[in-house]
Simulated assay, not measured.
Amino acid sequence: MTRVRRPSAQTTAVVLALAEKPATWRYGYELCQQLDIKPGSMYPILIRLTDRGLLEAGWETDVPAGRPPRHLYRLTGAGRALAAGLAAAPTPRPTGARVGWQGA
């Protein structure tokens, strides 16, 4: 039996942020600011999600003069399904966690 791994907390946050408005194209930098994730972590997440068919990516078409075009991202149907599953699933508790333990 193959075990399906839950995405990392950062990947989950990115997917759920994109799911807030699934049809809207978003910039990586905008997601970095919203989620307080550094670009060095954000862009590999976006690339992985795109490679797995969970995001579609495209280039900005209406670019102001003097600025290069930016990459845009939004969820695919499979990405929306993943987001729905992540939103409905309980957050896993770390193994060995002691419920109600106050410590000394």
Rank of each mutant, 00 (worst) to 15 (best):
L16A: 01
A81C: 00
L82H: 05
A57Q: 14
T2C: 02
L75H: 06
R48I: 05
D36G: 09
T2A: 13
A87V: 04
A65E: 10
A17C: 02
Q34D: 03
Q34P: 00
E56I: 01
P64K: 02
T50S: 09
Q102F: 04
D36C: 07
K21W: 02
L35A: 11
T50D: 07
T2P: 05
A83M: 09
G96R: 03
R74N: 05
T11H: 00
L46V: 06
G96Q: 05
L31Q: 10
R74E: 09
P69D: 04
M42T: 11
R6I: 10
G53D: 06
T24K: 12
T91H: 11
E20D: 11
P44S: 13
R67W: 05
P90K: 14
M1P: 15
S8Q: 03
K21L: 04
A13D: 12
T76A: 05
T76V: 09
P64V: 02
I45Y: 03
T12I: 04
T11D: 00
D36K: 15
I47G: 00
D51A: 14
P39Q: 13
A83V: 05
A89V: 07
A88T: 09
P7C: 09
G96Y: 10
P39W: 06
S41E: 11
L35N: 08
V15A: 07
A97Y: 06
I47T: 15
Y27T: 07
P68H: 09
R6Y: 03
G103I: 09
R48Y: 01
R52E: 14
R6H: 06
T61W: 00
R74T: 01
A23G: 04
R52Q: 12
T12Y: 09
A104C: 08
T91A: 11
R26P: 00
E60W: 01
Q10D: 15
A87T: 04
G66N: 06
R3L: 10
K21F: 00
Y29D: 13
K21N: 08
G96H: 04
M1G: 15
P22H: 01
P44C: 06
R67F: 10
L75A: 03
C32I: 12
A97Q: 07
A104H: 14
W59G: 05
E56D: 13
L54Y: 02
A23M: 08
Q34V: 12
L18G: 01
T11Q: 15
G66M: 04
V14D: 09
G66P: 01
R93I: 14
L86R: 02
E60M: 03
P69A: 03
I45T: 08
A23Q: 12
T12N: 04
H71E: 11
L46C: 02
L72A: 13
W25K: 08
L18W: 02
A97R: 03
G53T: 08
I45Q: 03
G96E: 09
Q34K: 15
W101R: 15
I45H: 04
A83T: 09
M1L: 12
